[in-house]
Design a protein around this nucleic acid. Structure first.
Length: 886
RNA sequence: GGGAUCUUAGCUCAGCUGGGAGAGCAUCUGCCUUACAAGCAGAGGGUCGGCGAUUCGAAUCCGUCAACGCCCACCA
């Protein structure tokens, strides 16, 4: 006896209750088990500052679908969860919060600040986890990790020391991107370029005359977008082949304001075609100029403080902000008659992706990872298919980065993060990189060391995530069993930041790829296609959607109608459609349970299956095969679309309707039991196929329907079975469906209300078709609004003016009691005649084409011949009807 | 400047390896048929961006042009 489902589908409350049960039963937990094959996913760790947004919802829905699918298939499925300390993002937030309290981070000092940061982590780190649970994520929460927990810290230190020893991590003065607001260096990947309206200041420097004085007659003109950097100019460059400037070779120009002579250098970096062919060189504040400076051994003058104000090298401009200084310098140049013109100019400005501040290139001592050797196995792996990217086109993006790789600046002038394990001898300044603070300086023997104040780029620890979470650097059983992981699910926007870095780290540290496949998804945009952002205020909160429509509806919305790697638009109508589907599933299940109420389905009920039963079982069998194949190929949206169509269109709209007469008033117990048996069988398998996508509703129904079962999520995935393939019945029922559709169509066209039943004659010369209708009479009558169904060989006893529907191998007649509009009926038949003529012409066209006949595959030709035959027969029938009526 | 993607019904998008154009929403017409009006039954609506090539056959493969947005690099 079954329990009952609530009258209306209401995800509210139900979802939390079910999730609670899953947690208590520990279904998400995975342990090493040599008897089972592992299937592993590591979560892209959300930031501890984060709140669940649509991107997370999509990302984690996809992972949960895969992990639930594999778990049901019998794999030992581990979804490894955790969170990311997100050094700069978090530090910025904490500073903001402190600011509200009127505290500067330096007031607290490093230790005080870190104390606050850990409090922050404690408070907000769990928030996002709770939100992931709302979504239904079946992560193994017992294994939750954090990028700054003890194990991850050890992994980071280990990697840093190993790589330093190998010479692949080094410290050096390079030009790096500096964020003057966050007060730290950032990597190239963290710089976002955006087009900004600006100006092109055309200015001129006097040449230096033979007396070493600025000439009053000779000038060199060029243009700049950042005039203030002239304070740091140490040369002017021209192309060596530029004949216009041959006379300048070996000469000097006078740097105004700073008032000193600087050389003219020749460098092929200069584009002769651009502007005047003259470039001012500021090695301290421009990456290209820095390279030029290295080649010509130019002095590097840093003119900026860390907060982007002018430093003491800027003379009278010291203390001014970079933009104030720009204005003042332009005014001064104009005063000196050195400003030629100001042009409006749009150019690309590098900004910090976190705070949008314009970054300043600066020369600073930083730690770098040497990339040239490290990247090689990562390139090879993708090139040779060792790691598969889905969709494949992402390879282009991937190689675009690996081919242009530059050394990775990993030190950050932040407090929140992994402290760099480098120690400086207080006496002799010797650098010691070690896991622990050294006791004695190897060089001078002194015992006092100061640790490097910097922390590491947050991606340094995320790069180790696939193995650090499994216990590395220890050789744990988990690591041996679960590594390499199977699939990584993430957005294409972090290929550079994360995916590539995990791959080269995996090969370098583990000598093995971190995952076999990377499944990319796109961005979730708003209904107008805009990026969801805080500043636009167009973000849609997944939690609100869950609250209103349920997590199942949200998940279904995010996964349908979208191909891997493509962006998608989110709008409420789609969530409603998904919720309506949930409601449909709910009600169909409720219907089935109501009919099972108080009945015991006999064990041998399957022996009495009728054609309709075999038809739906056969359809189900096909669905199982196809949906599983699609999922194996990561075509999640396609798979669930098929399940959706099956449940709604085939199962609910046809099968359940077909079966109703048998359930309601059948004296034939065997027939009724076969129907119940089939309903239950199909529903259960359909629920299983749906479970990875809509875990809550399927669990609720499954457990209500089968109180002896514990949970659908540990049930086994349906398998395609040849014993469930009934080709003959599939075809037969399609004939009945075609007849029903034809009759409904005709009735609607003539405005016959459904309440008005009519006699239906099925005329066919073929006994096998006749028996199909005979067998299906009971439900055919209901679906075709028939008061009576008469199957016969000829038209005996049928009124001439009956309405007719021509289908393959049969004609259906409906003699309505009162006159129907004969003219209208003739028109309809003529339309049908025309359609069939068109079909026949098309078929003939192909079959009369010699090339088609000789080159097309035989099966295709046969298929076309069959169609021609079918349409010809139908046309004959239609014409016969027309003759009768006219 | 380079690269990848995309252009399909009024809207948002599917369409896997070439063989008669699909879904959801919207629109129109009937239905309170005892699972579901968050529903049922029907209907209308597209020379699949343009041109060209390959093929018996192209929304699908190739080339080219155009448009939208995206990524990367760079413009001193």
């Amino acid at each position: 006896m079954s329990k009952e489902l609530e009258k209306t589908y209401d995800p509210h409350g139900m979802e939390d209750r079910i999730y609670q049960k899953w947690m208590e039963k520990k279904y998400f937990h995975a342990e090493v088990d040599p008897d089972k094959k592992p299937f592993t996913i590591v979560i892209p760790p959300p930031n501890i500052t984060g709140q669940l947004h649509m991107g997370h919802a999509l990302d984690n829905t996809m992972q949960d679908i895969l992990i639930r699918f594999k778990r049901m298939q019998g794999y030992n499925a581990l979804w490894q969860p955790g969170t990311d300390h997100a050094s700069i993002a978090t530090e910025v937030k904490i500073i903001e919060k402190l600011k509200e309290e009127g505290i500067d981070k330096h007031d607290l000092g490093r230790d005080g600040f870190l104390e606050r940061a850990w409090e922050w982590k404690k408070e907000y780190g769990g928030r996002i986890i709770g939100q992931l649970k709302k979504l239904g994520s079946s992560c193994d929460w017992d294994r939750e990790r954090f990028t700054m927990d003890e194990g991850c810290n050890r992994a980071v230190t280990e990697v840093f020391c190993k790589m330093h020893e190998k010479g692949w991590i080094y410290k050096g003065a390079r030009i790096i991107n500096w964020c003057p607001v966050c007060n730290t260096s950032i990597s190239d990947a963290e710089v976002e370029y955006e087009d900004q309206a600006g100006h092109f200041w055309h200015i001129k420097y006097p040449l230096v005359d033979e007396n070493g004085k600025p000439s009053t007659t000779e000038f060199l003109e060029f243009a700049t977008t950042r005039p203030e950097t002239m304070l740091g100019d140490t040369a002017v460059a021209v192309h060596p082949d530029d004949e216009r400037y041959t006379y300048l070779h070996g000469r000097q120009v006078w740097l105004p304001i700073v008032n000193k002579a600087i050389p003219v250098v020749e460098d092929t970096y200069v584009d002769m075609e651009f502007g005047t062919g003259v470039v001012k060189i500021t090695p301290g504040h421009d990456p290209n100029d820095f390279e030029v400076g290295k080649r010509h051994d130019l002095e590097i003058v840093n003119i900026l403080n860390d907060d982007a104000t002018i430093n003491k090298n800027g003379g009278v401009y010291e203390g001014m902000d970079r933009y104030e200084a720009r204005k003042a310098i332009v005014e001064e140049l104009e005063k000196q008659g050195l400003l030629v013109e100001i042009e409006d100019y749009s150019h690309n400005v590098g900004t910090h992706d976190r705070c949008k501040t314009t970054v300043e290139p600066m020369v600073k001592e930083q730690w770098f990872v040497k990339m040239d050797e490290l990247i090689k196995p990562a390139v090879k792996a993708v090139k040779e298919g060792e790691i598969r990217l889905v969709p494949e086109r992402m390879q282009k993006t991937y190689f675009n980065w690996t081919d242009n790789i530059r050394d990775w600046c990993i030190s950050r002038q932040l407090w929140w993060g992994h402290r760099i394990p480098a120690y400086y001898c207080d006496e002799c300044k010797e650098v010691v990189v070690a896991k622990e603070k050294p006791a004695v300086c190897p060089k001078c023997g002194c015992t006092h060391f100061t640790q490097d104040p910097d922390t590491l780029d947050t991606w340094f620890s995320s790069a180790l995530w696939p193995f650090s979470t499994l216990g590395w650097p220890d050789e744990t059983e988990d690591l041996k069993y679960f590594y390499p992981t199977d699939v990584l699910v993430t957005g294409y926007d972090i290929i550079f930041f994360w995916v590539i870095r995990m791959i080269f780290s995996g090969y370098e540290q583990m000598k093995e790829k971190p995952f076999k496949t990377v499944l990319f998804h796109g961005l979730v945009r708003d209904s107008q296609g805009r990026k969801m952002s805080k500043s636009l205020g167009n973000g849609i909160d997944p939690l609100e959607i869950i609250e209103k429509y349920g997590a199942d509806a949200l998940r279904l919305t995010l996964i349908t109608g979208n191909a891997p790697g493509n962006d998608m638009r989110f709008y409420y109508e789609r969530v409603e459609a998904a919720r309506n589907f949930a409601n449909k599933v709910w009600n169909a299940s409720r219907f089935i349970m109501m009919n099972m109420e108080g009945k015991e389905i006999p064990k041998d009920a399957g022996k009495y299956l009728e054609p309709a039963d075999k038809w739906i079982i056969s359809k189900l069998n096909r669905l199982v095969k196809e949906a599983t194949d699609n999922m194996e190929r990561y075509e999640l949206g396609i798979a669930v679309q098929k399940v959706y169509d099956f449940i709604w269109d085939e199962f609910c709209d046809w099968y359940i309707e077909m079966v109703k007469p048998r359930l309601y008033n059948s004296d034939d117990v065997n027939s009724q039991n076969a129907a119940l048996y089939t309903l239950k069988l199909v529903l259960i398998d359909a629920l299983k196929l749906l479970h990875p996508y809509m875990p809550f509703i399927t669990e609720e129904i499954f457990c209500t329907l089968q109180s002896e079962e514990e949970s659908i999520m540990i049930s086994s995935w349906p398998l395609a079975d040849d014993n469930r393939a009934f080709d003959k019945e599939e075809k037969e029922i399609e004939i009945l469906k075609e007849a029903v559709r034809g009759i409904r169509n005709v009735r609607t066209g003539m405005n016959v209300p459904p309440s008005r039943k009519a006699q239906v004659y099925v005329v066919t010369e073929k006994p096998e078709i006749a028996s199909v209708f005979e067998e299906g009479k009971l439900f055919f009558a209901t679906l075709a609004y028939a008061s009576e169904v008469l199957v016969q060989e000829d038209k005996a006893g049928i009124a001439d003016d009956a309405v007719s529907v021509v289908i393959e191998n049969a004609t259906v007649y409906i003699p309505f009691a009162e006159l129907v509009d004969i003219g209208q009926e003739i028109e309809r038949l003529k339309k049908e005649e025309k359609r069939l003529q068109g079909e026949i012409a098309r078929s003939n066209g192909m079959l009369n084409n010699e090339k088609f006949m000789s080159k097309a595959p035989a099966a295709k030709v046969e298929e076309e011949k069959g169609k021609l035959e079918k349409y010809t027969r139908m046309l004959e029938q239609v014409r016969a009807r027309l003759e009768t009526l006219q």
